[in-house]
Amino acid sequence: MLDDRARMEAAKKEKVEQILAEFQLQEEDLKKVMRRMQKEMDRGLRLETHEEASVKMLPTYVRSTPEGSEVGDFLSLDLGGTNFRVMLVKVGEGEEGQWSVKTKHQMYSIPEDAMTGTAEMLFDYISECISDFLDKHQMKHKKLPLGFTFSFPVRHEDIDKGILLNWTKGFKASGAEGNNVVGLLRDAIKRRGDFEMDVVAMVNDTVATMISCYYEDHQCEVGMIVGTGCNACYMEEMQNVELVEGDEGRMCVNTEWGAFGDSGELDEFLLEYDRLVDESSANPGQQLYEKLIGGKYMGELVRLVLLRLVDENLLFHGEASEQLRTRGAFETRFVSQVESDTGDRKQIYNILSTLGLRPSTTDCDIVRRACESVSTRAAHMCSAGLAGVINRMRESRSEDVMRITVGVDGSVYKLHPSFKERFHASVRRLTPSCEITFIESEEGSGRGAALVSAVACKKACMLGQ
């Protein structure tokens, strides 16, 4: 009897593995994704193909990295998701002549009506938060230079001027797309009239992360975010950046690689679950690469896999709870928690219980395998993109072996128990001629924006502006 049951459990697990095998990517698959990513990057950089390229390769006008001589107080704003952060950054000489960066910050959550109302409502709310922060720190009387981390696709015309191309991540505030974001912020500050600010720089969160990590390690020339969304930036040779005049030196390019796949480059790798996630998203047909990796989508992918296993009578005796059938019910943090389970399955059992399920031991094991399959594919897909960037940098610099540091931020990278190990191992397999160091950014977005502002202020002083 026991043997029969054991055989049935083994057969069930084997069927589960057959279904989950769809998520496995072979090294040849990853090399294919990497080569296609490089081709799209090239198209994004070139003037004649930029418009139709899915990977936009947006110039950021960040050319210099901090040298350690900029000092002063800077205000930093960070808008990239449902939370908005205001930070005071003091850049100065530390002990023994070292450079020191001290920060104080406060988080504000953005109400739904500000995210989806008008641009005026959104930026009025942001300036209200700045006003509140300055009151708390008794700094209303000071006109501070301000660095703005704005983590949406922007076409820069200068370091302090950028046109919002399109909202992502659930934002829909009308009247912002096609307009200068810094102008919208300046107008809102003017409307309030109770404080003055000098907006000197606007950067993407990947750029802010790279600059913040450069402060720790001067070989950091790539910034990457794996959180709600997924994106990367890197220092490109100016001669390859056709959208900006000049051939000397390097400029940081914001790849906006989340949109890779929007022209069909990933079609052969998309599964039924991916198509369902895409169809029910706020932007169907867009940001397809990001939807395979980002935390906004990972939990939902797992939920759809679990429903398939229920329908195949391989999980929960073929019956799903009402909660499990509800879109968004299986949160991405559950994926991390399930994979963090120590082996007694308590954590998995508790999560499934909150979803109205009474799982068996085998159910718990199957749910864990589903989570591992989805998150491992995410790590491997992400590795193909980064390997594409790094191999490109090595080739354009004609280096036999390139040493490089990548600064990384984002909740999936930082909080998932195995993502970074799987990701690092896969990147290294795909970049055999590179020695890569990964560092995690601390308060990256805010500190990085302030350091970019410090560079901009120093330049302005040198130019006598």
Rank of each mutant, 00 (worst) to 15 (best):
S426D: 08
G97T: 08
S174V: 11
I293P: 00
G261T: 00
D3F: 02
R191E: 10
G178Y: 10
N240P: 02
R447K: 13
E22M: 04
S433G: 15
V181L: 11
I19A: 03
V452H: 10
T354V: 05
K296E: 07
M121E: 10
R377E: 00
G72D: 12
E312Y: 07
A21R: 08
V91K: 04
R43T: 03
C213M: 11
Y214L: 11
F269A: 02
V91P: 03
T354G: 13
D274R: 01
F74H: 12
N180E: 14
G464I: 04
D42Q: 15
H416Q: 05
D267H: 09
V374N: 01
S76F: 07
G193W: 03
R275M: 09
R422T: 11
L243W: 08
K140I: 09
A176R: 06
A456T: 07
A21C: 14
P153G: 08
E268C: 10
A370Q: 01
Q18V: 08
K190Q: 11
G407V: 03
S321Q: 07
P111A: 09
R308D: 05
V89M: 05
E399P: 03
R63M: 10
F269K: 02
K15A: 15
H424M: 09
M107S: 13
S151W: 03
D4I: 03
D4N: 10
C434K: 00
D198P: 12
G246N: 03
T60H: 03
Y289S: 02
G299V: 00
A232R: 01
M251S: 02
L79G: 11
I110L: 12
P153S: 04
E279P: 03
G246P: 04
S212V: 03
A53N: 02
V401Q: 05
E339N: 02
V101P: 04
R63P: 00
I348M: 04
L451C: 09
E268L: 03
K90Q: 12
F133H: 03
Y234V: 01
E67G: 09
G448Y: 07
N240V: 07
S453L: 12
T361L: 04
F152G: 14
E96K: 15
A259Y: 13
L20I: 00
S418K: 09
R447P: 13
M462R: 11
K15R: 10
G328Y: 09
K31N: 03
E440Y: 03
S174M: 13
D135P: 00
E245W: 05
R394N: 09
G356I: 04
K102W: 10
F316E: 03
K291D: 03
R403A: 13
K190G: 13
N231H: 15
Y215K: 02
Y61P: 07
Q18T: 07
R7A: 10
E157R: 11
E22A: 07
P66C: 09
H137N: 00
M381D: 00
H137S: 09
C371T: 05
M37P: 00
L185T: 07
K459R: 11
L185C: 05
I159P: 10
P359T: 08
H137E: 08
H141N: 11
R191L: 05
D311N: 14
L386N: 02
L25N: 02
E9R: 09
A456P: 04
C364H: 03
D194C: 13
C233H: 02
E237K: 04
A387M: 01
R394C: 05
S411G: 13
S321C: 14
V277K: 00
L134W: 06
A53T: 08
V89G: 03
D217C: 03
N254D: 08
C371D: 02
I439F: 07
G294K: 04
L314E: 09
L144A: 02
L314G: 08
V182L: 09
P145Y: 06
S280C: 11
G80S: 14
I404L: 12
W257F: 13
V367E: 00
D365Y: 09
F152V: 14
E339Q: 03
L315C: 12
S151G: 15
R5P: 10
F123W: 09
A379R: 00
N166T: 12
D78I: 07
T116E: 14
C129D: 04
L144G: 02
S340G: 08
M202Q: 08
D341N: 03
Q138M: 06
E272C: 15
E395V: 10
L288V: 14
V55F: 03
D4G: 12
E339K: 00
V200C: 09
Y273P: 13
Q287F: 05
E435G: 05
F423H: 08
E93A: 08
G92T: 13
N83L: 10
E70V: 06
V408P: 00
R325Q: 10
K346L: 08
E339A: 04
Q106T: 13
T49I: 04
K143P: 05
K31S: 08
Q24Y: 03
V277G: 04
L144D: 04
E300R: 02
T82V: 10
V310S: 07
K102G: 13
P66T: 08
Q138C: 08
E265S: 15
E196C: 07
L2N: 03
R303H: 02
C233K: 00
G246T: 08
S151R: 09
F148Q: 06
V241K: 01
F133V: 02
E22W: 10
S100K: 11
L266V: 14
L307D: 08
L430I: 08
T60L: 04
F23A: 05
Q138T: 05
G318A: 12
E51Q: 08
P359V: 03
A425W: 03
M393H: 00
G318L: 04
R5T: 14
F123C: 15
T361N: 11
A378K: 02
F123E: 04
I211S: 03
L430R: 00
T168P: 10
A6T: 09
H141P: 11
S69N: 14
Q38C: 10
C252E: 02
H50F: 03
C364K: 00
S131K: 11
S321A: 15
R46F: 05
I404F: 03
V455D: 05
R428S: 13
M41C: 06
E17L: 05
K161S: 05
V412I: 07
Y349P: 08
G229R: 11
L306M: 10
F260D: 00
I189N: 04
A329I: 14
L415T: 10
R275T: 08
S375M: 13
N180M: 02
G444R: 09
S360N: 15
G444V: 10
H317E: 14
R85M: 14
I130D: 00
T228I: 14
V452K: 05
I293N: 07
Q465R: 04
I211K: 02
L276A: 04
I439G: 04
E399M: 10
G385A: 13
N231V: 08
D42L: 14
R63K: 10
A425K: 03
R429G: 13
L386E: 00
Y273G: 02
S100H: 10
R275G: 06
S100F: 06
Y297N: 05
G464P: 11
E9D: 13
D158M: 05
V89P: 01
K31T: 02
W167T: 10
F23Q: 00
L270E: 06
